[in-house]
Amino acid sequence: MEYTWDFTVIVDAFPVLLRGLLVTVELWVLAFAIGLSLGFAVSLGRISGRPWVNAPAIGYVEIFRNTPVLVQLIWFYYAFPIVLGQQLSPFTAAALGLTLNTSAYCAEIFRGGIVSIARGQWEGAKAIGMTRAMTMRRVILPQVMKRMLPAFTNRGIELAKVTSLASLLAVNEIMYQGRLLSSTYYRPLEILTVVALVYFVLIYPGSYLSARLERRLAARD
């Protein structure tokens, strides 16, 4: 059997795919930015010596890391509104799930970085009267940022891929548009292949940079 490819449908479909791509990027930026900040806050809880701060932070991180993201998104879309008493839009539910999921992973990256800094650095800063917050900002984070960068880039890449799951909540991002279009035109082979390529073009630069960065950091040590 010989299949005849027909990529002309792509020309028709492209504006719609592009609109989907925009939603994908929106979802990614939102979840990554908030996920990073929230992750930092959680990591502070993770390294705290107080058990009543530490234990919930561990629970939070472990729950998000030990359940599938898709289950989390579905939970936030179908289950969470019930306790909330208010329906969430697909986009809000997806953004919420992706953000919290990302924050749990980022918390572990931050924690790993922060505890890798020798105790003497904290003491040196303390001895000249710096508060914990000042020390974190001026002494600890600047030293570990570079070390954590590859891990954060990897997280960004994972997140970009995971945004596709929002399509299953009917968020009209690129994957969703791709599926819709492939049933409209009945050309799933062409359209899904193109969707895969669009993702590749979107994500590859990031992973290329991350790999280079990792090599450079490894060479320097």
């Binding site: 040196g124 001895a127 000249i128 009267g129 508060t131 030293q143």
Partner: peptide, 20 residues
């Protein structure tokens, strides 16, 4: 404590300088 430490300075065995 931070205010106190600006009045009582300390030099450590391991220097504890900021490498960056």
């Amino acid at each position: 404590l931070c205010a106190l430490r600006t009045r009582v300075g300390m030099v450590f065995q391991q220097f504890n300088l900021f490498p960056h």
